[in-house]
Every structure is written in C-alpha cells, then in structure tokens.
Amino acid sequence: MHKFILGQYKNLSLAEPKGFDQKDLEKAVLESILNTVDIWCKQNTTVEEEDVIIIKVEAKERGVLVPEFCQNKLQYKVGDKSYLKEFMNAIGKKLGESFSMEINFDETCVIERIRNKKVSLYATITDVLYKKIPEITDDLVQKMETDCRTLDEMKEKYAAILKSRGLANIYQQKRDLVLKTIIENSSYEFDEDEFDQALNKIIEQTKMSIMNSSSPDIDRIMQINENDAYFRMECERVTRRMIMENLVINEICNMEQIEVTTEEFALEKAKYTEDEAASEEFTKYFPTDQSFELYLLREKVLHWLCLNNFNVH
C-alpha cells in the first residue's frame, strides 16, 4: 500500500479566470468574419494582378526534371516585373488550380544543360493573399452564410459561437487550475514498478500520436525515442500528472460519495451514439462501458470541484 495524502480540495477560493469583454468580443467577431470572407474568396475568386500567391512549381525539359527550378513554396506577387512574364498566367486561376509556362532559355542561362532549350513549368496555387477583399454586403453574407440574411445577423451568429467557445475555454481553465492546486497540495510516494508500467504506456501513446498526426512535426519524430532525454523527461512529467490526477479523482469520489447512476450512464451514452457513424467513433474512444463510466465519473468530479472552489472577483 503506497502512501497518498490528499490535500485540501474544498473551499480553495480560487479566482475565476477572466473572459473577454465586449470590446474583445467585437474584435474577435470582426476577425472571424474577415477570415470567412478570405475562405470564401479562395473558393470563389480568381487571381488578379497584385495578389500574392504561393505556388508549387515543377519544371521539366523534355520530360526530365530540372530540380533547380522546382520549388514547393514560391511566393509571387502577380505582375512583379522581376519574374518572367509567363508567371502572369496565374491570372484568372483559383486556389488549388494549376497553370503552365513554356520558357525558352538562351545561351546566357546559368544552368548550362538547358541553354537554348525550352523548359515546361507547371505551377499549382497553394495559397492566395488578396490585395483587395470584396465589400461585406448583405448579398455577400447570404452567399457565405446561407442561414444569415444580413451582416448584423452574421455578427450575432458569430458572437454567440465565440461566447460559447469562450465559456468552454474558461471552464477548462477552471478544471485545470483546481486539479493543479489540489495536486500541488497532495503527496504520493511513487512505486517504481507502477510508475514504469504507466510510463511505458505514455511513451507508446505519445509515439502513436506523433506518427499518426495529419501534419507530423519532423523534429518531434526525431525525438520519439525513450533514450532521448527531453522526450523521456516530458513523458515522465505526463505520467506523474496522470497518476496524481487519477488518485485525486478516485479519492474525492470516495470521500464525497460521487457516482454515476444507471440512468445518467444511459442518457449520456445515447447522446454519443445517435447513429451508426457516431457509435463507431464512440467505440474508438470508449471500447468498454467501464471506460465510458470512468470518463463520466471524472467529468462529474471535476464539475463538483469547480462548483466548490471558485469565487467570482
């Protein structure tokens, strides 16, 4: 039996995290609308002169790759006279579309093997930074947001979404802070075998998460080795935190007699399994009823802790 001492967990009088005020909300709404306009333009607007485009370029001479001219992220301001006139072929194209260029190089070309030869360049537009954005009229709003008739309605919709996200963020901050505070005031003597078992699981989960990322970080991939000091230290920190959180949650469950009733379990499960697709996704995260019950129990304890430990200042 390992010694665990739970610190104070009630009446901590923690300060309520600050949300955004009306001025911040108005700024966030404007930024969100401009972002929506930008996305709409990229889907519906063609490139014009003085727009800045990011292009991926592939160059070939008689079907043979010319690597010196190949680029993944070439930034080009349409009409820039320091570029060959053929780059103007981008005009009239949209994001994701391609354009081609046939360029004849004379004897002055710095690459000897393509002097006096024709090189075919194929460019794909991967991003567009527009010099001008359209005026945000009610007509444009109706094209961007079919459930909004006016700009004011769009502002109201975005404000409601941002408020909801803001409240969710504040609630998450409260959960993190109350757990952190309780853990800092608690103590536990880690058993080496127990810790190593938990650490090995965290290491494997972290490796899988990094490798399966939609945009994996090469630097992190190079570090996913338990012999890498930084990687191991980070996994050890996560492991200690996980063990302490579980101990705190379990102890408070017992002391406060918090439980998930059969009715609560059924109701919550129904919310996550409304159709076949949702059920499949649910099973990935909660392969057993016990795993879902533990999740609900954790959520219930954290909610109880937030109610009992925050003061609004």
Rank of each mutant, 00 (worst) to 15 (best):
E135F: 13
N227S: 12
V64Y: 03
L140R: 07
L199T: 04
F105T: 06
E268A: 14
L12N: 06
I39G: 00
S215A: 15
V312I: 15
E145Q: 14
K174M: 14
Y272I: 01
N116T: 08
E145F: 15
E251Y: 04
L95C: 01
V57H: 01
A278P: 01
K117P: 01
V78L: 09
P216Q: 05
A168G: 05
N116W: 09
V52K: 10
L296T: 11
A229R: 05
I125Y: 00
V238D: 04
Q75G: 05
V37M: 03
V301W: 07
E50D: 09
R113Q: 11
L162Q: 03
L25Y: 04
N311A: 15
N311I: 15
K18G: 07
Q290H: 12
S100V: 08
I210A: 10
E281G: 04
T261W: 11
N246H: 10
C41S: 01
E264L: 08
S164P: 04
I39H: 00
L162M: 01
E184M: 10
E256P: 15
Y76G: 02
N72T: 12
E293Q: 12
Q205P: 01
V238L: 10
K27T: 11
F190S: 05
A168M: 08
I210D: 02
D147F: 10
T283F: 00
M244T: 03
Y285R: 09
F20P: 05
Q257L: 13
Q172L: 08
T261N: 11
F265M: 12
F87N: 03
N309Y: 13
C253A: 10
A90E: 06
I210Q: 07
K143V: 02
E68I: 13
E97S: 10
C70T: 08
N309I: 11
I133L: 11
N250D: 15
D191C: 09
L30T: 09
K77C: 10
A229L: 11
A198S: 12
D219T: 14
L162K: 03
H303K: 15
L199D: 06
D51M: 03
L14K: 08
Y158P: 03
M101Y: 02
S32Q: 09
E234S: 10
E274N: 00
K269A: 07
N225C: 02
A270I: 05
I133C: 01
I33K: 03
F310M: 04
Q223T: 02
V29C: 02
S186G: 11
D152S: 15
L302K: 08
F231W: 10
I183S: 07
V238Y: 02
F4T: 06
K269M: 10
T108F: 07
F310D: 00
T46N: 00
V248P: 06
E194A: 08
T283G: 00
K157P: 05
N35G: 00
Y130P: 05
Q172R: 11
T137Y: 10
E245Q: 09
V260Y: 11
W40A: 02
P216K: 04
G92V: 09
K155Y: 05
E145D: 14
Y171F: 14
Q8V: 12
H313W: 12
